[in-house]
Amino acid sequence: MLIREFGWADYDAVVSVWRTAGSDPLPRAELEAKLERDPELFLVASDGTIAGVVLGTYDGRRGFILRLAVDPARRREGIATRLLAELERRLKALGCPRINLFVLPDNAAGLAFWRYHGYLPAPDVVCTKPL
């Protein structure tokens, strides 16, 4: 399994992984803007097909994991762990001191995965405003 940077040829396969994993795909325009900033933090796991994807970002102060998804048919193969390890390595190389992420409270499997990898729930209140 090769962990590498996303390329536009991967877009349809990444959308497919997001959909089968239960996430809405990000529109091309959003990804274009994101890739102008830190393309090295958008990673795919590939062994001829895209099995997983992680979308990270770094604002100069904190790293964020915005999306981690693995094709449900490929879960329990260590793909998410490998994607996470490579993203963490890249964020650390950028000087990132802390990584944040969001998990929906009813996502027990997601919470267990993140806790297993050392991510602890924080009592922050998340506020959002669509523009």
Rank of each mutant, 00 (worst) to 15 (best):
V54S: 10
L66T: 10
P121R: 10
E86F: 08
A69G: 13
L55R: 09
D71W: 06
W114S: 01
L41S: 09
P72L: 02
G95D: 04
D47Y: 07
L26N: 03
K34D: 09
H117A: 04
N107R: 05
L101E: 03
R61H: 13
I79Q: 03
V15Y: 07
Y11K: 06
A9G: 04
V103Q: 01
T57E: 10
R74N: 07
D71Y: 08
D71T: 09
P130D: 12
Y119H: 05
R82E: 15
C127W: 13
L26T: 02
D24R: 14
P25M: 08
L43K: 12
V54I: 15
F102N: 09
D124I: 06
E88T: 05
A9C: 04
C96G: 05
V54R: 09
L55V: 14
A33L: 15
V53C: 14
E40T: 02
L104D: 12
A122P: 00
V126D: 00
K34A: 12
G95S: 07
L87A: 09
A9N: 03
N107V: 04
P105V: 12
A13L: 02
V103G: 05
E40P: 00
R62E: 14
F102T: 13
S16T: 10
I65D: 07
L87H: 13
V15W: 08
E40S: 10
N100C: 12
I65H: 05
P97C: 07
C127Y: 15
D38A: 12
R76Y: 11
L120Q: 13
A109R: 13
G56C: 14
D59I: 05
V17Q: 01
C96L: 04
I99N: 02
K92A: 13
G52Q: 03
A69R: 06
L2G: 05
D124H: 13
V44I: 14
F64W: 15
W114N: 01
K129M: 08
W8M: 00
A112K: 08
R4V: 07
V126E: 03
K92D: 07
P121W: 13
P123M: 01
G60W: 12
Y116H: 12
A13Y: 01
H117F: 14
G22D: 04
Y119D: 09
